[in-house]
């Protein structure tokens, strides 16, 4: 295999763990076994404790507007270790969890904050690689 094809394959593998369709927090809370199916066919389970923690951060009306998992987008052009959170409700939740000033529609976070976010929300956040 040529090196180019290996790299392309490697890049295409980076996001295989992400779900075909995300689940809203409301749907997840109602499901007896909250989980999403990844593009590679595997199943990823959300922990109930995390779902309840998220529900506590949001007004009732916002629960069907929060898609799960929340995506932590890693994008080299933002600079190494910088990640982007997109989406109105996602940004609202993440800035609360990190104790950051809420931005409009988009939030940039840095490596130590990514670590905190992953510690608090290990199953309801996932990495997304962007290029």
């Amino acid at each position: 295999m040529s090196s180019d094809r290996i790299i392309k394959l490697e890049l295409s593998r980076l996001n295989l763990h992400l779900p075909e369709r995300r689940l809203s927090l409301k749907e997840a809370l109602l499901s007896p076994r909250p989980q999403v199916a990844a593009r590679d066919g595997s199943v990823h389970v959300f922990k109930r404790g995390e779902l309840e923690f998220l529900a506590g951060l949001l007004p009732e009306a916002d629960r069907d507007k929060l898609p799960l998992p929340i995506l932590i987008a890693l994008e080299p052009k933002l600079g190494r270790g910088t990640a982007r959170i997109s989406g109105e409700v996602e940004v609202k939740v993440v800035s609360q969890v990190l104790g950051k000033e809420a931005a409009a529609g988009e939030l940039l976070i840095y490596r130590p904050e990514v670590a905190i976010l992953r510690r608090k929300l290990p199953t309801t956040t996932q990495y997304l690689f962007m290029w």
């Binding site: 490697e10 890049l11 890693l74 190494r80 690689f129 290029w131």
Partner: peptide, 11 residues
Amino acid sequence: KGYDLLKEKMD
């Protein structure tokens, strides 16, 4: 590009 992304993954 591959290098940059895999480096992010390593981090």
